[in-house]
Simulated assay, not measured.
Amino acid sequence: MHKLYSNKKVIFSLMAPGLFVFAAAILAPILLSVYYGFTDYSGIGKSSFIGLDNYRTLFQDSVFWTALRNSLFLAIGFICIQHPLAMLTAIKLDQLQGKAEGLFRCIFFIPNVISVAVIAYLWKFIYNPNFGLVAKVLKNLGFTGQLNLLGSGNAIWSVLVVLIWHGFGWGMLIYYTGVKNIDPVMYEAASIDGANGRDIFFHITLPLMKPVIQVNVTMAVIAALKQMETVYLLTAGGPGNETQFMASYLYKQAFQSYKYGYGNSISVMFIVICLISTVALNRIFAERGE
Score class of each variant (00 low, 15 high):
D199P: 01
Y232C: 02
K252R: 14
T235F: 10
A220P: 03
G145V: 06
I126V: 15
F20Q: 04
N140C: 07
Y176F: 07
V221C: 13
G237I: 05
W65V: 06
L103F: 15
V272K: 04
V185T: 13
D40P: 07
V159F: 06
Q214E: 14
K180W: 00
N196T: 05
A190N: 01
Y55S: 04
F285K: 10
G171Q: 03
Q253N: 09
L233I: 10
T205H: 10
I11M: 13
C80R: 04
L32A: 07
V10F: 15
I81G: 12
F22A: 12
T278Q: 12
N54S: 06
F22V: 10
G51Q: 04
N154M: 14
T235S: 05
W157A: 00
G51W: 01
L32E: 11
Q82L: 01
A247Y: 07
T89S: 15
K259Q: 15
I110K: 00
I200P: 02
P207C: 11
E101K: 02
I91L: 14
Q60L: 11
L160D: 06
G240R: 01
L275F: 14
Y260S: 13
E287Q: 12
I156T: 08
M228S: 08
C106D: 10
N140E: 09
L27G: 08
I156Y: 05
D193H: 06
R288W: 08
L14K: 03
D193K: 10
S267T: 13
A75G: 01
L103D: 05
L138F: 11
L225T: 01
Y258S: 13
E188D: 14
Y262K: 07
Q82Y: 09
K9I: 11
V161W: 09
D193E: 15
A25M: 11
T66E: 10
V113I: 15
S277E: 09
Q82T: 03
D61K: 02
Y55K: 02
I164R: 00
A286H: 12
I81L: 14
H83F: 07
F20V: 14
V161E: 00
T230K: 06
G289L: 03
I11N: 03
F64H: 00
L72E: 02
A28W: 15
M1N: 10
A195H: 10
W65A: 05
I110V: 14
I204N: 01
V116K: 08
V21K: 04
I213D: 02
S267E: 10
F131D: 08
I119A: 02
